[in-house]
């Protein structure tokens, strides 16, 4: 690992550990009740003690998120290609998409519960609803910003619209598509946890809601830490995939 990489990992880690230490010291020093704010050591104990259930619920959240995310990527790609390739489709759909995206998705969860009942289905759908917009928009932008000179060079060779789309449109959209994946996976994660918190019987969101109603603050915080770790992990995986697949898009 190069010095720059060590630095990139070590510095934020150092700040994080420092913050935990301050927190640990502040709880007894300021005489804060552990039921209001438990110290990090207490949270860690809770995580270890409840490791079994946490693992179960974390897996549930992960699966829910990934199913919603997968569906969002599929539909986002299709919609993005349609919008980016055709001015008519763009004019017809883009304003609707923007309008749709400005609805706070948490407001949709009660409707989803009414239709599909309490469980994983509303969580998958909420994840999907939050995640497909960034994918669709990025793909559409990638296609729509194709240089007109390049299009002319290819058309003057007798290339069809389909050939231009395949040879140039799709590859040049890939950096934007992969950049959108890490945003979309984070959004999907937010969506599934929101839905789990409101209406589910499994998942970290559900675990935290139950812990909070039991005044088990330590476990609620434990859930929060697990969520943070999962969120960072999901984002990280797709950030690495992006670098690997579309490294050409970044200047050395």
């Amino acid at each position: 690992m190069s010095r720059a990489n060590v630095r990139r990992l070590a510095l934020p880690l150092l700040v994080f550990v420092g913050l935990l230490l301050v927190w640990e010291a502040a709880v007894p020093a300021l005489r804060i009740q552990p039921i209001i704010l438990p110290p990090p050591s207490g949270v860690a104990t809770a995580i270890v003690e409840t490791a079994g259930p946490i693992a179960f619920h974390a897996r549930h959240t992960l699966v829910t998120t990934l199913i919603g995310f997968g569906a969002a990527v599929g539909l986002g790609l299709l919609l993005g290609f349609a919008i980016g390739a055709s001015v008519t489709v763009n004019d017809a759909l883009y304003p609707l998409l923007v309008g749709f995206n400005s609805i706070p998705k948490a407001a949709v969860v009660p409707l989803l519960v009414m239709w599909f009942g309490i469980g994983a289905v509303p969580a998958v759908l909420t994840a999907f609803l939050l995640a497909f917009f960034p994918v669709a928009v990025n793909v559409a932008v990638g296609l729509a910003t194709l240089e007109s000179e390049l299009r002319d060079v290819l058309r003057a060779l007798g290339a069809s619209r389909w050939q231009i789309f395949r040879k140039v449109g799709v590859p040049r959209t890939m950096p934007l598509f992969f950049a959108s994946l890490k945003v979309a996976v984070s959004s999907a994660f937010v969506g599934s946890v929101i839905s789990e918190t409101v209406a589910s019987n499994a998942g970290i969101g559900y675990l935290m809601a139950v812990a909070a109603s039991d005044f088990n603050t330590r476990l609620a915080f434990g859930g929060l830490f697990v969520l943070a770790a999962m969120g960072v992990l999901l984002y990280g995986v797709f950030a690495i995939v992006e670098r690997r697949v579309t490294g050409w898009a970044y200047a050395e």
Binding site: E147, E149, A156, L157, V168, P171, R172, T246, A249
Partner: peptide, 16 residues
């Protein structure tokens, strides 16, 4: 036309 060569001020090479 189907067999024309074109070049512009912007070289528009495919970066990938």
């Amino acid at each position: 036309l189907k067999h024309v060569g074109m070049a512009f001020q912007n070289p528009v090479l495919l970066p990938w």
